[in-house]
Design a protein around this nucleic acid. Structure first.
Lengths: 326, 326
DNA sequence: GAGTCGCGGTCAGGTTCCGGCCGCGATCGG
DNA sequence: CCGATCGCGGCCGGAACCTGACCGCGACTC
């Protein structure tokens, strides 16, 4: 049995499925001796995939980001999610990468098992069937954060983060994430709060700087039906509050309405814009492009960013001819 | 030299990059004898990946859809496209798979090289429809069709399809696809029409039942500027020429390569960007988000728009308190 | 019908792989 | 500070594997 290639692939798959593994468990799963496992790991390293290792108790192996993409080993659901995401992106929901998305989609669909293809079809038609509601404004959630949370929950790693509760009070938390839940556009993390010694449901948008602390914990089940809560506000990294020195109607005319935008009149010549976004540059530019006089109230960083951008933009635009027509 | 595992991986990668390969070429690329190649193919089959083969001249190997997902071997752009698609899907743009998308994203981001991560970030913020540039409903292009076209173009396979031209006249076409181009919400296929013996640009939504006919053709280059003339120019109202005060590599890293974008080095610290778009605001936004110093040469309106934008951003007084807390 | 191409059997020689054993060093907990 | 745990990598011997070469066969195209 020419097992070694397949085993190496299986090892890669395991390393992608969980972030960190103790060597002994890997060896057992692959059905080889620990010595051979070390050799397999070396093989992966020689192939250019950086496998990081930690000595001592609680040591183990983990696959890190290197300079080249390793082969992605996906389970069924993930493959479906990717296919659906690519279809949507190719449909023009995401600007600028349509053609590449189509190419990636071609590659994936070439090898996509037919039972999965069926699922992709039903899912895709389900989601795109809302022509009116299709053009989404900006992303509701910080994807980076989601990825961190999903990973911590998957790998059963303790999570440290700041949390701002309903009343705005900040606190530092240490929790054992159980599952990431999305309800509508909102995301929640169900977790065991080790400080409070109880189950909590955290709104993801109120969490700050979550990071896996590297300590694994024993799984734990939450009580039946623990996952209920209701909230309103959108989820984005930066929330902006800006006064626009223009009548409400004028402003409303230039702003693409969405869940993430609130516009209220202050008086007949002024209105207040509340909005949010993942990047300060994005906020600065979209606000600036409204072409209205405005005053930024929050966040303070936004004003800084605007000044910096203004500096870039000011520099003698259009004064010169392009260098040379090659 | 323990090459065999890596070679098997490389073989898998080749089989995903093109649909069909003649055995001799695969053997040469992998640097082994044809006999060994056959053994490698057998190995893949034993691992459960269905490699189909065709005898006779024009024979070769092709990887087909099996019962399990094979490891996906992605190039940089594809990886970025998938990451962006997943982020968007996870953010709730696509209903029903948010949690799975987040999981897949975690898996991908764990191994995503950092240079790609930057591209994902800048791209991700651009997913929004602009105020002003309202997304009008468009004859939806079938993702399945797109995948077929992208694959045929990639693999250089002749394509047979029906086409309904501007006047509604139907015709059957046989063409050698060159490239799939997306402009705005529309898709075009640039191809050599073997019947007309000339280059044609087909609108994808007017094509019916395209399918790869299985015949490979020798690649052929369209005349210089053909794509720009037939698609980019008519579609994008504004064509911009901008000097970026950054090395080519830095700029290339932040700009999504597409048919609408040309980037050339001027010297070691400067490069020239040519791009196009429907709206000045969109152009200003994408250029502004690059976070690079730049100088706009064309069009003059864009330079004006940038100056105005700079004025707005600078004019903000940055007062701290909003008028009244509602 | 000729030529091309994939298929798979066989063989021989060299290489690799594996498990077991060892001492080493890093890390964590007491 | 010490001991336990875990990853590291050298070494060994025997078994297994991999490779290239050669062969005749069958499928397919022109």
């Amino acid at each position: 049995m020419s097992d070694t290639t397949g085993r190496t692939l299986r090892l890669l798959s395991l390393l992608q499925a969980h972030r960190e593994w103790p060597g002994a468990e890997l060896a057992e799963r692959l059905g080889v001796s620990p010595r051979t496992l070390r050799r397999d790991v070396d093989r992966l390293r020689e192939l250019g995939y950086p496998v990081h290792s930690v000595s001592g108790p609680a040591g183990g192996y983990r696959l890190e980001a290197g300079t080249a993409m390793p082969p992605l080993l996906l389970d069924d659901e993930e493959a479906v999610a990717i296919a659906v995401g690519l279809r949507t992106a190719a449909a023009g929901t995401v600007a600028g990468i349509e053609e590449t998305s189509a190419r990636a989609l071609a590659k994936l669909e070439q090898v996509l098992p037919s039972r999965l293809r069926r699922r992709v079809n039903t899912l895709h038609t389900q989601t795109v069937a809302l022509p009116g509601a299709l053009p989404r404004p900006w992303p509701a959630v910080d994807a980076e954060t989601l990825a961190v949370l999903a990973q911590a929950a998957r790998d059963r790693e303790r999570l440290r983060f700041g949390y701002r509760d309903r009343d705005g009070a900040e606190s530092a938390r240490l929790a054992e994430p159980y599952r990431l839940v999305s309800a509508g556009r909102r995301w929640y993390l169900v977790a065991w709060d080790t400080g409070r010694e109880d189950w909590r449901t955290f709104r993801v948008d109120r969490m700050t700087a979550p990071r896996a602390v590297g300590v694994r914990f024993a799984p734990r089940e939450p009580p039946e039906g623990h996952i209920e809560r209701s909230i309103v506000a959108p989820i984005s990294r930066h929330r902006a509050v800006v006064t626009l020195h223009a009548p409400l109607e004028v402003a409303a005319d230039r702003i693409w309405p969405s869940d993430h935008v609130r516009l209220e009149a202050v008086d007949e010549r002024t209105c207040l814009l509340r909005t949010g976004g993942d990047s300060l540059e994005w906020l600065a530019l979209t606000i600036g492009l409204l072409d209205l006089d405005f005053t930024v109230h929050e966040p303070p960083e936004l004003a800084d960013r605007m000044r910096r951008l203004a500096g870039r933009l000011r520099a003698d635009q259009g004064s010169t001819e392009p260098p040379e027509r090659q």
